[in-house]
Amino acid sequence: MYISLYDVGLFSLFVLLVIIGGYLIAVLRRALGVLCLVRGVLDAHQGDIGETISLFKETLININELTVSLKETTDHTNRAVRALPGEFTDTVEELRESFETFAFYAKIVGDVVKAVFSKAA
């Protein structure tokens, strides 16, 4: 009795399908084990998960309020920073004018003192 190439090919294909089927069964068994573990964790923490989900609405409201507050604070800070150079410039200008006035009066007083003491001498 001889074995034909057709029989060898068919046998090889059958063995390959058995190996692939065994591998798929092992993978599915491992996936089922992981899903059972996840299910156990979810069941153990069902109350905590429910409490966390119930707080989402309040958390989102607080985040929205915080965002609005942060935007308002940023706007106020932006206005204050923009106003600062104007106020600073005004203060420097007033100080410069005061120094010019002081220098002018000091020059007048110096001229008067020079005129009084130069004639007296």
Rank of each mutant, 00 (worst) to 15 (best):
G9Q: 06
L70F: 03
N64D: 12
G47A: 15
F14Q: 11
D7M: 09
N64K: 09
T89M: 10
S4Q: 01
L37P: 00
S98N: 07
L37S: 05
F99H: 14
T91G: 13
L35Y: 06
V81P: 00
E51K: 09
S98R: 08
D75P: 02
D75I: 06
V38P: 01
E100T: 09
A106V: 11
Y105I: 01
A106D: 14
G22C: 01
V68A: 09
A120T: 07
A44Y: 00
R30D: 04
S69H: 04
L95Y: 05
R30M: 02
S12H: 05
F117I: 08
L5V: 10
N78K: 08
V68K: 11
R82F: 15
V38R: 00
A103G: 00
D111L: 09
K71P: 04
L16W: 04
T52V: 15
Y23E: 15
D75R: 05
A121R: 00
R30V: 03
E51R: 10
L35C: 05
E65S: 05
A103L: 10
G9I: 03
E51N: 12
L60W: 14
F88A: 09
R39S: 14
L13S: 09
T67D: 07
G110H: 12
F102K: 14
V92Y: 14
L95Q: 05
R96E: 14
Q46D: 12
D48E: 07
R29S: 10
V116A: 09
V109R: 06
T89Q: 15
S12Q: 07
E58T: 04
I61L: 11
I19D: 06
G50W: 07
L37W: 00
G86D: 14
D111M: 03
A106E: 15
L16R: 00
Y23L: 14
R96M: 12
L95W: 02
L37Q: 02
P85K: 02
V41T: 00
A103S: 03
L24R: 03
I20D: 05
D48Y: 03
V109C: 12
K107F: 08
I53R: 03
H45S: 07
A26G: 07
G40N: 10
M1H: 13
D43V: 10
G33E: 06
F14N: 02
I20K: 00
V27Q: 14
A26I: 14
G40Q: 06
R39N: 10
V15D: 02
V27N: 13
V109A: 13
I61C: 04
H76N: 13
V18A: 11
F99I: 10
L32E: 12
L95N: 10
V116C: 11
K57Q: 13
V109F: 12
L32F: 06
K119R: 05
D48V: 02
G9V: 09
E94H: 08
N64A: 10
N78Q: 11
R79Q: 08
G22T: 05
I53E: 07
V92W: 12
E58I: 01
V27S: 11
S98E: 12
F102Q: 14
